[in-house]
């Protein structure tokens, strides 16, 4: 079994925990640097990206989170998590963790009254059924680098993507009972863990 951490500084933590557990992972809530050591993968949840960034800096988690990403361990960012992982944010001089080669537009779909849900076709998900994308003051990805695979688009805007072991989406899979995206991520974590295990043998 893999242990997946959830960055638990602020935001929809419990919902991610439910979806990850339903996908067969053990869950650990991460509030401090040292807790990053014992996990195989990390979810950066939805919430307020400005708030999370402030708390990341305050608790000196910024460097360790970048190290975590460099170590190759899988990361999955939803909504604010996607913003934190992006290399470029429109209207801001710098990105935050800058682990994914994507350029994002914060609140790209507007304010709360414009927030919506829509059935989406997400590449790589099991079965033919559409995925319900819940978009809340959501960002979108304006452009991606050459190594990034686009998994879903809506109105010609990129809303889910993968770059190697980094996964992100602009919507909230944790707010639905459809656990396929979390299952997909847990599988990524299992594969990475097995590879590490084989190398060390």
């Amino acid at each position: 079994m893999v242990t997946v951490g959830i960055l638990a500084l602020q935001g929809a933590v419990r919902e991610h925990a439910c979806s990850l557990e339903a996908s067969g992972a053990e869950v650990k809530l991460i509030k401090r640097v040292e807790e990053l050591e014992d996990i195989d993968a990390l979810v950066v949840p939805g919430g307020e990206s400005t708030t999370m960034r402030r708390l990341i800096d305050k608790y000196e988690m910024f460097g360790p989170l970048q190290e975590f990403a460099k170590s190759g361990k899988p990361m999955f960012g939803t909504c604010a998590g996607l913003i934190l992982m992006a290399k470029e944010i429109i209207g801001q001089e710098h990105g935050h963790l800058e682990v994914m080669d994507i350029k994002v537009h914060r609140n790209g779909f507007g304010r709360q009254r414009e927030s919506f849900e829509i059935p989406l076709n997400v590449d790589g998900m099991e079965g033919d059924e559409d995925y319900i994308g819940v978009f809340i003051r959501a960002p979108y990805i304006e452009s991606v680098g050459p190594d990034v695979k686009v998994l879903a688009t809506f109105q010609d805007k990129i809303v889910a993507a993968q770059q190697g072991r980094f996964l992100c989406c602009a919507f909230h899979p944790e707010l639905t009972d459809d656990h396929r995206m979390h299952g997909y991520f847990v599988k990524m974590a299992e594969e990475f863990k097995n590879e590490l295990h084989n190398v060390s043998k």
Partner: peptide, 21 residues
């Protein structure tokens, strides 16, 4: 079909505020 103002979208917004001030 795009649906705005659903329970999920409205309640979800508050879920994102959890743990915050």
């Amino acid at each position: 079909m795009v649906q705005t103002g659903t329970d999920r979208v409205k309640r979800g917004m508050a879920e994102m505020q959890k743990g915050g001030v």
